[in-house]
């Protein structure tokens, strides 16, 4: 019962933080609240038995993302201007989508059901056989690194790619793209070459 209360309290806090993020115009406050939101999510994941996920969310969401967003704000400014559009169309889209999804949850297995379809297919095999096959107590690590090692290789490659892409975008010095703006003269010389060849 206490667990249920903790769950409900944390989820309600998450909802409230999300609404505050939506309403606030000061981006500094928004970024700080998104750190709070990540920390709440991490606590929620602990309550839902996902300790590895909680650990990652606390380190990544509350730590690294907040630092990166602060660094971005230092470069871009921290006030959001009010939008000139009316919010009715997005609001209608969001409400209809939300209503459809909530209607769909009534077909889902109840929260915490041991016989839900998700829990019947491969999970029992991992839980029963992984200790004999891989020999690690932490099933999440054995699935991550051994059973689904190929998947994780892909994820590591995604991080590698993101690192390379950020290097491409921000690695040069500011104003290095002046060369791109000077393209028309280069085109002229190209045309001259063509002319001489003709």
């Amino acid at each position: 019962m206490i667990i249920t209360l903790v769950d409900i309290a944390l989820l309600t806090f998450m909802g409230a933080t999300a609404f505050a993020i939506l309403r606030l115009r000061s981006l500094f406050a928004v970024v700080m609240l998104s750190g709070v939101y990540s920390l709440l999510a991490a606590s929620m994941f602990v309550a839902l038995d996902a300790v590895d996920v909680a650990f990652t969310e606390a380190a990544v969401g509350a730590g690294i993302s907040t630092v990166l967003m602060m660094a971005t704000l230092a470069l871009t400014g921290e006030r959001e201007r009010p939008s000139r559009h009316t919010p009715y169309v997005p609001l209608a889209v969001v409400l209809i989508t939300g209503a459809a999804l909530i209607y769909a949850t009534f077909d889902m297995p109840p929260f915490g059901a041991a016989d839900a379809p998700v829990n019947l297919h491969v999970a029992p095999r991992y839980l029963n056989d992984s200790f004999a096959e891989v020999g690690l107590p932490n099933v999440v690590t054995s699935v991550l690194a051994s059973y689904r090692g190929y998947d994780t290789l892909g994820e590591v490659t995604v991080i590698f790619t993101a690192g390379v892409a950020v290097m491409l975008l921000l690695g040069g010095r500011k104003g290095d793209d002046a060369g791109i703006k000077n393209e028309p003269p280069e085109d002229d010389t190209g045309a001259d070459d063509g002319g001489s060849a003709a």
């Binding site: 590895d52 990652t56 380190a59 107590p137 932490n138 999440v140 690590t141 991550l144 690194a145």
Partner: peptide, 14 residues
């Protein structure tokens, strides 16, 4: 990370 919560992803970030 083999025995408790943790692993390469978390350790790298920390």
């Amino acid at each position: 990370g083999d025995f408790g919560p943790g692993g390469g992803f978390q350790a790298g970030v920390i």
